[in-house]
Design a protein around this nucleic acid. Structure first.
Length: 304
DNA sequence: CGCTTTTGACCCGCGC
DNA sequence: GCGCGGGTCAAAAGCG
């Protein structure tokens, strides 16, 4: 991993408002492109660059490159990807083994040859580890990340997650939590951490692709956006909106401020403004407007 | 009792 | 080669 956090942000904006926004993705992207502020936080996100302007904060990689990396070849899908991506990153192979690909996780690595227990390893374990090194290959699955203004760290997204680790992050007062999907054969992982520059913002990073559907309705009764993405990773996550966020509501580029979730939902229903998902700031629940599912699931080109 | 979270130790890659 | 930091493991503790 190379996501070293710079000790001091260079030319950091005085008051960044790190929120993903923009009801019109094209204009959102163009406005960001006009003022790429990624060099404010160079390499902070490793595979990501970070773009911040007054209204938004987006983790991004070049969408075409990313589309290639995650295997979007169709122009139509690529277009959709480009329009609606919040942040994507792709995995990189970092070792030299020519064995078959495996991700660096307990599910994929050979199990320890003994179970001496604990997080510790005794001499026997160390020996077996040396053997394992020869066949071990470290690969990152495709990842995407997004930032959400939320009071709760772990946003409910319709899947069940088991926390398997927590680490202090260098130069950040906030720890990073590691979650793994509880589905038996699913290898999707997720990292959750608070943005060190703005503690009200949560950075969520998904890695991998669910091989199953969601557990259904969440406890709050909201549909997960991932429910409709469950079979295809190569689709972007929705953008998240919260009270106070600025969204472009007019064709002329006019910007409004979201007053409340209900107000936003109203706007979604009435104008089909392109808002894809709403993150309830206090509960952290992601609410899906089912009328907009088609905006998320790009129509697949059909031969017939 | 089964599942989840916590937590300290260990592994691994990378930069110096 | 060594140290640092991110990522993971797995026993113990917590919880419903």
């Amino acid at each position: 991993m190379s996501n070293r956090i710079p000790k001091v942000p260079v030319n950091a904006p005085d008051n960044p408002v790190p929120v993903v926004t923009g009801s019109n993705a094209d204009s959102c992207w163009s406005s960001l492109a006009a003022e790429p502020l990624s060099n404010y936080y160079p390499s902070y996100f490793g595979d990501f660059s970070l773009s911040i302007n007054q209204d938004s904060c987006v983790l991004d990689r070049n969408s075409d490159v990313l589309a290639n990396q995650i295997g979007i070849n169709d122009d139509r899908e690529r277009s959709h990807f480009s329009r609606s991506a919040v942040a994507y990153a792709s995995g990189t192979t970092t070792t030299s083994s020519n064995q078959s690909v495996s991700s660096y996780s307990s599910e994929d690595l050979p199990k320890k040859s003994n179970d001496s227990g604990g997080g510790g390893f005794n001499a026997t374990t160390a020996t077996s580890t040396k053997v394992k090194k020869k066949v071990q290959k470290r690969v990152r699955l495709p990842r995407f990340a997004f930032m959400t203004k939320s009071e709760v760290d772990h946003l409910e997204d319709g899947y069940r997650w088991r926390k398997y680790g927590q680490k202090a992050v260098k130069n950040s007062p906030f720890p990073r939590s590691y979650y793994r999907c509880t589905h038996t054969e699913c290898k999707v992982k997720k990292r959750v951490e608070r943005f060190w520059e703005d503690p009200t913002v949560v950075i969520t990073t998904y890695e991998g692709q669910h091989c199953h559907h969601t557990i259904g309705l969440t406890r709050g009764g909201f549909m997960s956006y991932e429910n409709v993405l469950s079979t295809q990773f190569a689709l972007p996550p929705p953008r998240f909106y919260y009270p106070g966020a600025k969204v472009q509501t007019g064709q002329d580029g006019s910007v409004d401020t979201i007053q409340s979730i209900d107000h936003l939902q109203d706007e979604v229903t009435r104008e089909n403004s392109g808002v894809l998902a709403i993150c309830n700031q206090s509960s952290g629940k992601i609410r899906m407007d089912q009328g907009l599912l088609e905006d998320i699931v790009s129509p697949r080109p059909r031969d017939s």
